[in-house]
């Protein structure tokens, strides 16, 4: 049984309806303050569906990450725990999803056009006072406002959970992402935070990332 608070759903619906690329928002489903799915009409792309991650999504998500994103995009966004440490197969991804599915302090949402994942976003709340968001859009669907759409959805998810702040860390050379975050209300904290990557199977601090924060009223 999906419990939907009508006011919450309505708030999300109206926040998304204000975005320039969105024609209509058809359906918003929320369960226990977590977005389960959103169905909307995009002016240029038609019907898009946002869905919470399931184990069954692993082949499509694997395809999205390794075929849909450029090497640079993957380097900019290796989201823990799904793709960091690195994985080699959709089966391994399914194991990770299954392994982490019971944890209720992270939310991963896929954006689908028909059955293809064209974007994904993540809200991690492992550190209760420092929730972190992240997102990526399939190469051929970039520059169509989908990053703004996904970040707006993450912001709405943060509102639903009563979060007061939302952090993001970005590679210093990721100018496009910095602009997107600024557009969505993030500001630089002035702090650099270590980013952990993998080289030859070993965990290494491979760069210092810019920390940004958005404060909600």
């Amino acid at each position: 049984m999906i419990k939907t608070n009508n006011t919450d759903a309505e708030n999300i619906r109206s926040a998304l309806a204000r975005l320039p690329g969105v024609a209509t928002v058809n359906d918003v489903r929320i369960k226990d303050r977590i977005i389960e799915s959103i169905s909307l009409e995009n002016k240029s792309l038609g019907r898009l569906v946002l869905q919470r991650l399931n184990v069954e999504d692993s082949p499509a998500l694997f395809d999205f990450y390794f075929r849909g994103l450029s090497e640079q995009s993957r380097n900019f966004w290796p989201p823990y725990p799904l793709f960091n440490p690195p994985i080699k197969s959709a089966e391994e991804l399914a194991t990770r999803i299954r392994d982490w599915q019971r944890e209720d302090d992270w939310t991963f949402l896929n954006l689908l056009k028909e059955k293809q994942i064209i974007g994904a976003c993540l809200l991690k709340r492992y550190q209760p006072q420092r929730p972190v968001s992240g997102l990526a859009v399939r190469e051929e669907f970039q520059k169509r406002g989908l990053g703004f759409l996904l970040q707006t959805i993450i912001n709405e998810q943060a509102h639903l959970l009563g979060l007061k702040k939302l952090y993001a860390t970005l590679a210093q050379e990721n100018i496009a992402s910095r602009r997107l975050h600024e557009k969505c209300g993030f500001k630089q904290t002035g702090r650099l935070v270590p980013h952990f990557g993998y080289q030859d199977g070993n965990k290494v601090v491979d760069r210092q990332e810019i920390e940004m924060v958005q404060e909600f009223n």
Binding site: Y126, Q127, F196, V205
Partner: peptide
């Protein structure tokens, strides 16, 4: 338990160390 992995990762990041 995932809490342990999360705590370890956060602590490593806080100290600026790998593990």
């Amino acid at each position: 338990a995932k809490e342990i992995e999360k705590f370890e990762n956060a602590f490593a990041a806080y100290c600026g160390t790998r593990y």
